[in-house]
């Protein structure tokens, strides 16, 4: 992604060691091994859902790795007069911290974050994944779901990390409960008017100035105060995970470091969604790099990608449920003990 300066001989060295039998990687991993992935949800107290993800943190050195913070924040939009769309919108953005890319000019950085935003928006914001509970009042008010990710450090494989962080943040997101409010003329006023003897003859119901009947439908909403922050986003199992296959025909490998990324001519991003009751679906696919590929190889790569994505998905799912458990049930128990 971000072009790391790498000499020709370094590149050839990395390529030939990846192609050797058995393949060798600088950090001793196998071709299909991921680095350690660390995940924590609920890191941004002001967001409706958030997650912090790290791939490849060095256990002993206390740092390193690709670091991403993603947060989902909901905003009320007016459908009639504002930008809102009936049923809600999803808007994704990615910001790359200049600290993560000291070698890039500000222009190149802008382009990079734009490209990452586009891939996130096109995948997460696609109508086929749209959560159904973003409506507040039909045809009047809806939620705008902002998903913002910040790349704090890049040690390779940003796209996979980005999608994992996005999935975790959206998984964690809670939509506040709302109650519709409607305006009604006070009952007492109506009856008092009718009781007055010899009142002015007004033909009821036909007056053009009587707006009482018009405002019967919900006009606004309020947020009831409740012990939890709301309900989870609809269809949160559907959010996809991404696996990036770095193609070095006839081999491919996962979770590349920046040096490996720079020495591989082509990569394939595959985003899969695994809904428990349905067969896995492909949510997005991108082929990048100045090389060409056969359809046969591409088909094989997709089949392999599905397999890897499934494993990644299962691991992420386990972790997310564990996080839910930690933050809800365990936290409640601890609170009860303290009292």
């Amino acid at each position: 992604m971000a072009a790391v300066l790498l000499s020709k001989s370094e590149r050839a060295y990395i390529q030939s060691s990846l192609k050797a039998t058995p393949p060798l990687r600088a950090d001793g991993r196998g071709l299909l091994d991921f680095r350690t992935v660390l995940l924590e949800t609920g890191v941004a107290p002001l967001a409706n859902g958030s997650a912090r993800l790290n791939i490849g943190k060095m256990a002993r050195e206390g740092g390193g790795g690709t670091e991403i913070v993603a947060a989902a924040k909901l905003e009320v939009e007016d459908v009639e007069s504002g930008d809102g769309v009936d049923g809600g919108r999803v808007a994704c953005s990615v910001t790359c911290s200049p600290a993560a890319y000291p070698h890039l000019s500000s222009n190149a950085l802008d382009e990079l974050q734009h490209d990452l935003s586009v891939i996130l928006q096109q995948t997460i914001g696609h109508p086929s994944l749209h959560p159904r509970n973003l409506t507040i009042i039909p045809r009047k008010k809806s939620w705008l779901l902002n998903l913002d990710a910040v790349v704090l450090a890049d040690a390779g494989n940003v796209v996979d990390a980005l999608f994992m962080a996005a999935r975790a943040a959206l998984w964690d997101a809670k939509v506040p409960r709302t109650r519709a409010v409607q305006y009604r003329a006070p009952e007492a006023l109506k009856s008092a008017k009718n009781d007055v003897p010899g009142a002015m003859d007004v033909d009821e119901g036909t007056s053009g100035f009587d707006t009482r009947d018009m405002a019967r439908t919900a006009a606004d909403f309020e947020l009831p105060d409740y012990w939890d922050e709301g309900e989870t986003l609809d269809g949160r199992e559907k959010w996809p995970v991404c696996v990036t296959l770095n193609l070095l025909t006839p081999r491919h490998f996962l979770d590349a470091t920046p040096a490996e990324e720079a020495s591989v001519p082509q990569r394939l991003h595959l985003m899969f969604s695994f809904v428990p009751s349905a067969p896995p679906t492909l949510q997005a696919m991108r082929l990048l790099g100045p090389e060409e590929l056969d359809l046969k190889d591409l088909k094989e790569s997709i089949a392999f990608g599905e397999q890897y994505a499934k494993e990644l998905f299962t691991a992420l799912e386990t972790k997310l449920r564990e996080e839910d458990n930690r933050r809800n049930i365990k936290a409640r128990d601890r609170f009860a003990l303290m009292r």
């Binding site: 096109q122 696609h126 994944l129 969604s273 067969p279 679906t281 696919m285 590929l293």
Partner: peptide
Amino acid sequence: LGTITSVWQSGSMTPADGI
């Protein structure tokens, strides 16, 4: 040459449909 230079896919489809 019978080769592919770019694939771009968006939205949901099964891998079989994609192929």
